[in-house]
Design a protein around this nucleic acid. Structure first.
Length: 487
RNA sequence: GGCGGGGUAGCCAAGUGGUAAGGCGCGGCUCUGCAAAAGCUGUAUGCGUCGGUUCAAUUCCGACCCUCGCCUCCA
């Protein structure tokens, strides 16, 4: 199906029609996690947002190569006094572990969490430490072309020189004057010629654990270089989409663009897509603010700000109910609303299989289907898509109640909408369909209760209903019989 | 201090130069042994405040207030 997709591009601050360089192929690079600790829920939002984008691009027929890196070389720590030591090796020494042991632990944890949220794996997931050679090669080019300089075994990028011929602030719209006047000067950076210069290669102190040989010193790569190296290697000098959290714009992505242009005269990506933050009481969720929590704490409810736990799909649904470029405020009341809404949607999805087609139809479903595409074509507007799916929910319920008639052709379209958008695009799963034995057991219990009801033994029937309610199963009586669902 | 977002009903959250999607909550009705579920239905004369442009502004412009983010690694 041909779709005119419009995407908001941070580079131009406008929605632009999406035109891939080599259709039907699409190259997409998303900055992945630094694996020195558990990912928190805010991190997850970004990967769920890009999962939606990946799924939709695939749905409308693109062959997407989705590259998402694992940063396992560690970044320099910003804390004064810790300059030159990266986060991964610091944690390793504290915990008496090998750096790669830390990397392994948190990489596995990251994968587990994303799988629980039903995100699709990227096509390639390269690790920074596996691309040291490529990074060294890029540094050589930047030195040759005069955009970098070496000082005592370390190599820095010369921002002011770069800015004489290029616009360093293309992405965040700030000019160099402004940056120079409003950037905090950190201690221990005497080697740099200019205060905006950033490291490409850092000479390692003797006690540093993760280090590699290079033409300049035994050391480790700077903290923006890996993405330039890996995107270039797997997607080419210029590809379609580069993504990440909005907080990467001013520094990481700005420097990444400068590196790529310094190496091969091209902004690496045509469309820069940035996802917004998850907030708690209006404030960004972050580890340093102490308002972050881990996915498993949300599932179990074991956290001081949580009233109770919520299932992974409820959380995913909650996130998709907001647009990816808006901040989303987390709260118990909002989670409760998503939980109810998601279950209502899923109940309708289950009901859809039982619907019978009539000879005639009261409704024309095709426009609804197009509205679903329209929503997603408008910069992946998942909240509007979900609103349309609730329209589908109303139709399903109405047909089920016998108030609306639908013919076979329209029923087929309705089923197609649900499978395409609920499952393939939004990536939701029906969690209550998981257990095989439960329906059989419940069938038996429900039949016993109906017998009691027939005998007007309401004491027994209510005892069964209330007992099931307590363990999280709700019975629903209707003319056709009794259904059940998990609460 | 500089730069950039945002302020939409009790909560979360879309959106638009022509009079406010959706979910939850709340009220009413249908159904029901009762309830729940489900369905139908009602629920912002209003979109931070004050001005301006316009036939028309929540939507554009200006000022102000509040709030958040970035400026140091950060999804």
């Amino acid at each position: 199906m041909e779709q005119n997709l419009f995407v908001y591009n941070t580079l131009t601050r406008k929605k632009e029609e999406f035109k891939p360089i080599n259709p039907p192929h699409v190259g997409m690079y998303v900055c992945g996690p630094t694996v020195y600790s558990d990912v928190h829920l805010g991190n997850c939002r970004t990967y769920i947002s890009f999962d939606l984008i990946f799924r939709y691009l695939t749905q409308i027929g693109y062959k997407v190569r989705y590259v998402r890196n694992i940063t396992d070389a560690g970044h320099l720590e910003g804390d004064a006094g810790d300059m030159g030591e990266d986060k991964i090796s610091k944690k390793a020494k504290l915990a008496q572990l090998e750096p790669m042991e830390i990397v392994q632990k948190y990489t596995v944890g990251f994968h587990d969490v994303l799988q629980i949220f039903n995100t699709l794996p990227p096509s390639i997931e390269p690790a920074a430490t596996g691309h040291i050679i490529e990074q060294i090669e890029l540094i050589k080019i930047m030195l040759e072309r005069g955009y970098a300089y070496e000082v005592d075994g370390s190599v820095y990028f010369d921002v002011e020189k770069y800015n004489t011929t290029h616009d360093y602030g293309v992405l965040n719209g700030r000019n160099l004057e402004d940056l120079l006047n409003n950037t905090r000067t950190l201690g221990g950076q005497d080697q740099k010629h200019g205060k905006l210069d950033f490291a490409l290669w850092i000479k390692a102190k003797p006690e540093h654990l993760m280090k590699w040989p290079s033409p300049w010193s035994v050391g480790f790569p700077g903290w923006h270089l890996e993405c330039s190296a890996m995107s270039h290697k797997y997607l080419g000098a210029q590809f379609d989409i580069h993504g990440g959290g909005i907080d990467l714009v001013p520094t990481h992505h700005t420097n990444e663009i400068a590196q790529n242009i310094a190496c091969c005269d091209k902004n690496p990506a045509r469309y820069w897509i940035h996802t917004n933050m998850l907030t708690v009481n209006g404030q960004k969720m972050s580890k340093s603010l102490g308002n972050s929590f881990l996915p498993h704490e949300l599932f179990s409810g074991e956290h001081s700000i949580l009233d109770r736990g919520y299932s992974p799909m409820t959380v995913r649904f909650f996130m998709l109910q907001a647009h990816y470029r808006s901040t989303l405020d987390f709260g118990n009341e909002a989670m409760e609303a998503s939980d109810k809404g998601f279950k209502r949607l899923m109940n309708a999805v289950t009901l859809l299989d039982t619907l019978k087609a009539s000879g005639s139809t009261d409704i024309d479903i095709a426009p609804l289907k197009q509205r679903c595409y329209d929503a997603m074509n408008d910069d992946f507007n998942s909240p509007v898509l979900i609103a349309e799916l609730f329209e589908a929910t109303r139709i399903i319920n109405s047909v089920h109640d016998g108030k609306t008639k639908i013919d076979a052709a329209n029923l087929e379209i309705l089923k197609n909408i649900i499978s395409t958008f609920v499952f393939d695009v939004l990536g939701l799963k029906n969690e209550q369909a998981a257990n095989d034995d439960l329906p059989k057991v419940l069938n038996l219990v429900v039949n016993l209760r109906n017998e009691a009801k027939k005998n007007q033994d309401y004491a027994t029937s209510d005892k069964i209903r209330d007992g099931l309610q307590k363990i999280g199963i709700q019975l629903k009586d209707s003319k056709e019989g009794t259904n059940w669902s998990k609460i």
